[in-house]
Amino acid sequence: MTAFTEAKMTGSVSEILERALAGEDISPAEGEILLQQRDRDTIEAIRQTSDMLRKRQAGDTVTYVVNRNVNFTNICEQHCSFCAFRRDEGKEGAYWLDADTIRSKIDEAIQRGATEVCIQGGLNPQAKLHGTSLSYYINLVKQIRQTFPQLHIHAFSPQEIQFIAREDGISYQETIAALHDAGVGSMPGTAAEVLVDEVRRVICPEKIDTQTWLDVVEAALAVGVFTTSTMLCGHIEMPQQQIQHLQRLRELQEKAVSRQYPAHITEFILLPFVGEQAPPALRRRVGRDQPVLADILLLTAVSRIFLGNWIANHQPSWVKLGLAGATEALRWGCNDIGGTLMEEHITTMAGAQGGTCMSVEQLQAACTSAKRPYRERNTLYEPVYSACKNSR
């Protein structure tokens, strides 16, 4: 292995990395082997492999998006064991933003150059008080679309889609198609947590199961709605379960390609568990409040090696890792530094220390410190040329 002559690796790890560099998909068993490595030289070889694959699959330029999160309600019928965001209706801190407040937030984002708004919220049963649940969500999207026609609306997780469909007794595909017609351009692949039901039964027993998440995302891709993909990592899951999650994402993307769906999964984002303000039961079980950077970086690298042939764009979470940790992840297979967000409540309320907003200048400086060129992109990873004049 010419690039890793100094590394002290077992033959099996060396062979796995050689096959990955030859362009082959590694197997789940091989991915698990990589995640189990603890030798410093071997981990460095894994990092180098992920970095070379990143360069080949996505290039050297680090991308970012100017966007704003709007979490329109924290009232939620579910009680996920890792969530410090949700509230019951009428309880202290519960909120449901009205249309004027949402428009004001988005108008501020437009003034700061945003090309995307990400809309997500709790599962609020009040959504159907004045009609169907779907009609509330459609009206929300239409109001944004009519006021800000230039903005890409990235909205509603698979969990929210299932909630709307369940409340109204309609199919996932019908729900997604109606929202797409109203103006939703893409869907966040959140609520995936870990796509292994034995883990989900502990951390989010009220949430959709693995197959439902996969079914909703496949329905979106079949309709023509692009999605992202995520993994909530660093809590109770084991390496085998992390790889099972990655395998299910890879299989879904392979299916989308083979069936020639009009859309595909655009990116993969690791979301490290932050437990500082999480409910006590899971916090005690995990035994730590903040992510372990070394563990997240190894998983970042293995995710690139395992998924990169199918999902080329990989992004760290500066909210969870801090900007320094996210910048380091650019050396471990990531090609995107994320978005400006402008506000972020869900992770911050759990005790994350990365902040809630990044300026474009801060993201660009992070790329420069990593000795990489940068470029603004839109939600679908197309260049935003008007912002490129200061790119390196």
Results as ranks from 00 to 15, higher is better:
F226R: 04
H130D: 15
P291R: 04
L341M: 15
I176M: 10
G59A: 09
R372K: 15
I106R: 00
R87C: 06
C357D: 10
E276R: 12
Q290T: 07
I102M: 15
D295S: 13
I16C: 07
V319W: 08
H152R: 07
Y95S: 11
L232M: 15
A387P: 00
C388K: 10
D41R: 12
R288N: 04
L195A: 07
Q362F: 03
A155D: 08
Y136I: 02
Q253C: 10
E254P: 00
M187Q: 05
Y385M: 13
P28M: 09
A324F: 02
Y136E: 01
N139T: 10
T190V: 09
Q57N: 14
M358W: 04
H245Q: 09
S171H: 03
V274Q: 02
A177P: 00
I46E: 05
A324L: 11
S135H: 11
N378K: 08
V292I: 14
R375D: 02
R47I: 03
P272M: 08
Q146N: 15
G333A: 07
Q277A: 13
C118F: 01
T115S: 15
D168H: 11
L214P: 00
T210E: 09
R331P: 00
T10Q: 12
G59Q: 05
G93M: 09
A366C: 13
R87Q: 13
A294D: 12
A387S: 15
P149R: 01
T5C: 13
I43F: 06
R375P: 00
G224Q: 10
S81A: 12
T42I: 05
H245C: 11
P28R: 03
V194Y: 00
